[in-house]
């Protein structure tokens, strides 16, 4: 499977959470869009790619036990919908923690991890995952 270009072209968003801002209404979107779904044609020419901070809070989450085969080593792993500070919501894994340490509202930040790889000989895909934010030097789950 030669899928390198498909992933490569999304690198700015996958590596750095480059989203999209509509300067007509001020709303942020992730991933980038071509037009603002609220402003439609009025947004044409008034949008810009914007790097989102990558920090936010868990809006909903689940611990995945029956996952895709490529993630078998991590099972069970956590998938969350994160509400970013800018207001956009994004789906991603939450790592380096246990589900019991998380709740709706837990603060997280984006980090870069391996998302998948095309077997042992193919391209490795990197992108954002989230880690709980240390508050007062401690992370959720710390004794």
């Amino acid at each position: 499977m030669a899928t390198a270009p498909r992933y490569w072209r999304e690198n700015p968003s996958r590596y750095n959470m480059v989203g999209f801002k509509c300067n007509n209404c001020g709303k942020y979107y992730f991933p980038p869009r071509i037009i603002c779904p609220l402003c439609h044609r009025k947004s044409v020419g008034k949008t810009e790619p914007v790097k989102l901070k990558g920090t936010g809070a868990i809006f909903s989450f689940t611990e995945v036990h029956e996952g895709m085969d490529e993630h078998y080593v991590q099972k069970p792993y956590i998938v969350a919908m994160v509400e970013l500070e800018e207001g956009a919501k994004v789906t991603g894994q939450v790592i380096d923690c246990d589900a019991c340490d998380l709740s709706i509202g837990t603060k997280v930040r984006a980090t870069l991890r391996k998302l998948s790889e095309e077997g042992s000989a193919g391209v490795i895909h990197y992108g954002y995952k989230f880690v709980p934010v240390r508050e007062n030097g401690e992370r959720p789950g710390d004794e």
């Binding site: 080593v73 991590q74 790592i95 380096d96 980090t111 870069l112 991890r113 391996k114 998302l115 490795i124 990197y126 995952k129």
Partner: peptide, 16 residues
């Protein structure tokens, strides 16, 4: 390292 970590992800995190 976690299964989704390698030299690249560690280098990125340190650099950031």
């Amino acid at each position: 390292p976690a299964p989704d970590e390698d030299t690249i992800t560690i280098a990125v995190e340190a650099a950031r």
